[in-house]
Design a protein around this nucleic acid. Structure first.
Length: 592
DNA sequence: TTTGACATGAGAAGTGATTC
DNA sequence: GAATCACTTCTCATGTCAAA
C-alpha cells in the first residue's frame, strides 16, 4: 500500500500496475475534457505554492497505475508516491513510539482538524456547523474504591479509618507493596492444588533447577499458605523436530505418562521458528486445550523458554564443575519476570485472587459475556470480587449468541451462585463485551424469569444489561485543562471521570494518577435495558477496573469481568490445526 | 513469548442505497 | 426482492515501551 500526494492532498492507493509511458508522455483529461500532461494536470489542481516533490518532479520519471473506488484506472507519478508501513515493519518500528500522542498534542490536532475540515459539513442537504470550542463538562469523578488484602489490611485513597491511607498518586504503588507485604498479601488463604511444572529436557539439564527453585521461592513468598510443592516433568524437546505438532505431541506424551493426578500445570515451550507464521501460538493453544481433555485433567498455563535462555549463563563453581547462574546484569529483569509468572501463571491460574473490593458493588452479581471465534465466555463476579466463576462454551454463531444458549448458561451460573452463597440473589447486571443482540437479551430475560419463579432470585431482583465498547462509533476523549498564568496545561483526565448522555456513558478507567504515555481512551458504556440506575452501573464498571490482578502497579482499561473473559477466551479460542496435531508429522517434516 | 495501554493496517462483517 | 456496491465499524495481528 502506498500513499499518493497529489498537490497538498494525500490519498491512500494500492498499486495496480506500472505504466509503459513516463510522466511527460501520459495524458489525462482535465475538467474540460481536454487531454493534458499528468504533471500539468496535478499542478493545475494543486494549491499554490506547490509542494517541493511536485516542483522537482522528473518528466522522465515512472508512472504507476492505481484503481479508484469505482475500479477505474488512474495514473500517478511514482515520485509522488510513498510507501506506508505498519508498526511491525523494520523500517519504522523504532519510530512507533512517536505515533503515541500526549494529550496536549492530540487536543491541538483535534482542534486543527475541526477548524480545517469540519467547519461546515453538509448532511442531507443541510449545513452543520461545529462549535468552535470543545464541550466543557462537570468534573464528576468516582473515587478509587478501597481494596481488601490479606491480614485484614485495607488500602484506601479516600481516608477510610483503620486503612492504609494514601494519596491517589500513590495508590498503584501501594497496591503493589501491600500485595508483596508478608503481613498483608493475598486476601484468600486456601491451599493450592497439585501443580506440575513441565519443562523441555534441554532446560531441565541446564538452568531448570535454579529456575524452579526461584519460582518456588517467589510463589511461596507471595502465597505462604499454599505450600507450593510442584512436580517437575520433563519432555523430550531434542529428540523430535521443532514443528508445532512434534513439540505438542512430545509435551502431551510426557504429561500423559507423568501427571498421574488432575491439577494445574505451567508448561514451558520453545519458540517455533519454522513452519507457518504464528505456529508458536498454535502450540500454546493446543496445550491449553488438549491437557484438560486428558484422563487426569490438567489446566495449563504456558510460558516460554526464551527469557530464561537469555538470562542464565554457564559458569564454573570454583571446583571445575559447570553451574548455571543468572547473568549479573539480567538478574533484576529475571526476578520480575519470575514474579509475573508466579502471579499470572501460577496463582491466578489456581484462582487465588490477590485483592478484592472492600465495599459491596451496587449490583449483587455482575456477569461479563464475550464471544470470540465461536466460543462464548462468561465471567461471574459476586461478593465484591471474592467469588469469580468462569465458563466457556462453543457456539455455532460467530458473534451472536443464541437465546437458548445464553438462557441455559445464565441459569446454570446463577444457580451455582445461589447454592454456594446460600442466599437469594438481588440485582443482576450483565456486561456485554461489544454489541448485545436482541436474541441474547431475550434469552437473559427468560432465564431471569425462571430463576425468579424458583426463588433463586429475590422477589425484588432486577436484570440490567450494559454494553462495554472498547472502541466507539463516537470516539470521545477527555482532557483535563487547567489554566495557569498566561496559558493552560492539558493532561489526561482523572480515572473515574465520567460523562453520561442519555443511554451512553463514557468512563475514564485510564489516566491520572497512572503514568502512561499517550492519551487516555475512555470506555464507552451503553445502557441497553434494565432497572438499575445507569450511573450506578457505571460506577461498578469503574470499581471492577481497579482489580488489576495481573499488574498491581498499573491501571486496567477494562472491568475485570470483561478482562478475564478476554484473557481466557484469547487463549482458549486461538485456532490450531487439530488434524495436523494428530496426523501432521509428515507435513511437519516436509516443512521443517 | 510477561503484562497492559496505545498505536496502526488489513480484512471481515455489517449497513444502506441502488439497480435490475 | 435479490444482487451489488460503497462505505462504516469492528476485530485481529502486530509493534513499542516500561514496570521492577
Amino acid at each position: 500500500m502506498r500513499i499518493y500526494r497529489m498537490g497538498h492532498e494525500w490519498f491512500d492507493i494500492g498499486l495496480f500496475a506500472l505504466h509503459d509511458l513516463n510522466v511527460s508522455e501520459v495524458l489525462v483529461p482535465n475538467a474540460d475534457g481536454q487531454m493534458v500532461g499528468l504533471a500539468e494536470f496535478i499542478e493545475n489542481r494543486s494549491r499554490k505554492p506547490i509542494p517541493p516533490e511536485l516542483a522537482r518532479l522528473d518528466p522522465a520519471g515512472q508512472v504507476v497505475v492505481y484503481l479508484n473506488t469505482r475500479g477505474e484506472e488512474r495514473s500517478a507519478p511514482a515520485g509522488l508516491c510513498f510507501l506506508t508501513h505498519d508498526t511491525e515493519s523494520r523500517e519504522v518500528r523504532a519510530s512507533h513510539r512517536e505515533t503515541i500522542m500526549p494529550p496536549e498534542i492530540r487536543r491541538a490536532k483535534i482542534a486543527e482538524i475541526c477548524r480545517k475540515h469540519l467547519a461546515e459539513i453538509l448532511v442531507g442537504g443541510r449545513k452543520l456547523r461545529l462549535g468552535d470550542r470543545p464541550v466543557e463538562i462537570e468534573r464528576k469523578i468516582y473515587a478509587l474504591p478501597d481494596l481488601s488484602f490479606g491480614g485484614g489490611k485495607t488500602l484506601s485513597a479516600r481516608g477510610t479509618p483503620g486503612a492504609r491511607n494514601v494519596a491517589p498518586a500513590g495508590f498503584a504503588e501501594a497496591r503493589r507493596e501491600l500485595l508483596l507485604d508478608p503481613k498483608a498479601g493475598f486476601q484468600v488463604k486456601t491451599p493450592l492444588d497439585r501443580h506440575y511444572i513441565v519443562l523441555p529436557k534441554m532446560v531441565v539439564d541446564s538452568w531448570g533447577s535454579p529456575f524452579v527453585h526461584m519460582l518456588k521461592r517467589e510463589v511461596t513468598g507471595l502465597y505462604p499458605h499454599g505450600s507450593f510443592e510442584p512436580d517437575v516433568v520433563s519432555y523430550d524437546d531434542v529428540g523430535v523436530g521443532h514443528t508445532f505438532p512434534q513439540q505438542a505431541n512430545a509435551i502431551l506424551e510426557a504429561v500423559r505418562s507423568s501427571c498421574r493426578r488432575a491439577g494445574f500445570a505451567t508448561v514451558m515451550i520453545h519458540d517455533i521458528v519454522k513452519g507457518k507464521p504464528r505456529s508458536h501460538d498454535q502450540l500454546e493453544a493446543a496445550i491449553l486445550r488438549e491437557l484438560p481433555k486428558l484422563e487426569h485433567s490438567i489446566r495449563a498455563t504456558v510460558i516460554h523458554s526464551s527469557k530464561g535462555r537469555e538470562c542464565y549463563e554457564q559458569r564454573d563453581d570454583g571446583r571445575g564443575n559447570p553451574v548455571y547462574r543468572l547473568n549479573d546484569r539480567k538478574a533484576g529483569v529475571f526476578r520480575s519476570y519470575v514474579r509475573n509468572v508466579a502471579i499470572s501463571k501460577v496463582l491466578l491460574a489456581h484462582e487465588k485472587w490477590p485483592f478484592v473490593l472492600s465495599q459491596p458493588l451496587h449490583a449483587d452479581v455482575v456477569i461479563g459475556i464475550d464471544v470470540k471465534r465461536n466460543t462464548a465466555g462468561y465471567t461471574v463476579v459476586s461478593n465484591s470480587g471474592r467469588t469469580i466463576r468462569f465458563r466457556s462454551e462453543s457456539s455455532r454463531q460467530s458473534e451472536k449468541l443464541l437465546a437458548s444458549q445464553i438462557r441455559t448458561q445464565l441459569d446454570t451460573l446463577l444457580r451455582e451462585e445461589f447454592e454456594d452463597g446460600g442466599r437469594s440473589l438481588g440485582d443482576i447486571v450483565i456486561h456485554r463485551d461489544g454489541r448485545s443482540f436482541p436474541e441474547e437479551r431475550a434469552g437473559a430475560r427468560e432465564a431471569f424469569r425462571t430463576l425468579l419463579a424458583d426463588g433463586v432470585l429475590k422477589s425484588d431482583a432486577t436484570l440490567t444489561i450494559v454494553e462495554i465498547h472498547k472502541t466507539s462509533p463516537s470516539p470521545l476523549r477527555f482532557f483535563d485543562v487547567r489554566r495557569d498564568g498566561c496559558g493552560s496545561r492539558v493532561s489526561n483526565p482523572n480515572v473515574g471521570l465520567h460523562y453520561v448522555s442519555g443511554n451512553d456513558g463514557y468512563l475514564a478507567t485510564t489516566g491520572w494518577p497512572f503514568r502512561r504515555p499517550g492519551t487516555s481512551k475512555p470506555l464507552h458504556v451503553r445502557f441497553v435495558e434494565g432497572e438499575m440506575e445507569f450511573e450506578r452501573c457505571l460506577e461498578d464498571v469503574f470499581r471492577l477496573s481497579t482489580l488489576t490482578w495481573t499488574r498491581p502497579e498499573d491501571c486496567l482499561r477494562l472491568p475485570i469481568t470483561i478482562k478475564l473473559t478476554d484473557r481466557v477466551l484469547g487463549e482458549d479460542a486461538t485456532e490450531y490445526d487439530e488434524d495436523e496435531l494428530r496426523f501432521g508429522d509428515e507435513h511437519g517434516r516436509e516443512r521443517a
